[in-house]
């Protein structure tokens, strides 16, 4: 696969402190961080590839496998936990047919859990792409995904 990151690099000068923002922009553009991108980023900032991996694997935001068209993030924050997030996650897994951390083969959905999305007063909640679904329960989950399929 030919990966072009020139449009990302054009906004940076290649300093070490720019690694995280570059990784963020590259992921935004490519939807994940393939090996080729990591190699190019390492070269651009003149840092060993292993160091770029060390940074990228440290932060929860970065992914090394492609995401689905719709990215589902189930919140497991405290308020969500107390209000039944575990059951919600079970139902989402059941509906999508994948487990936490996986992407469906048809590339329609990928599923992740997050520590907190900050909508605690409407717990339990989940995020589908950039939209927050609030006060969800098993029934609501089933409804949301049956519309999508």
């Amino acid at each position: 696969m030919q990966i072009d990151l020139e449009s990302v690099f054009s906004g940076y000068s290649g300093k070490r402190e720019e690694i995280i923002p570059i990784l963020q922009d590259a992921q935004e553009k490519l939807n994940y961080l393939p090996k080729e991108a990591m190699r190019k980023i390492a070269k651009f900032v003149r840092v060993p590839e292993s160091s770029v991996y060390a940074i990228a694997t440290f932060y929860a935001q970065f992914r090394f496998k492609p995401m689905g068209k719709n990215h589902v993030m189930v919140c497991r924050g405290t308020a969500c936990h107390v209000n039944g997030a575990t059951r919600v996650l079970e139902e989402v897994e059941e509906q999508l047919g994948i487990s936490e951390g996986e992407t469906r083969e048809d590339m329609e959905y990928s599923l992740e859990t997050v520590a907190c999305i900050g909508a605690c007063s409407l717990a339990p909640c989940m995020m589908i792409n950039k939209d927050v679904e609030a006060k969800i329960n098993k029934k609501k989950v089933a409804k949301i995904f049956s519309q999508g399929n």
């Binding site: 402190e17 720019e18 690694i19 995280i20 963020q24 932060y59 935001q61």
Partner: peptide, 18 residues
Amino acid sequence: AGAFVCGEETALIASIEG
């Protein structure tokens, strides 16, 4: 980029430094 430990001052600084 999603790391709770970055709430700690010196970790946050390390993160900004890349």
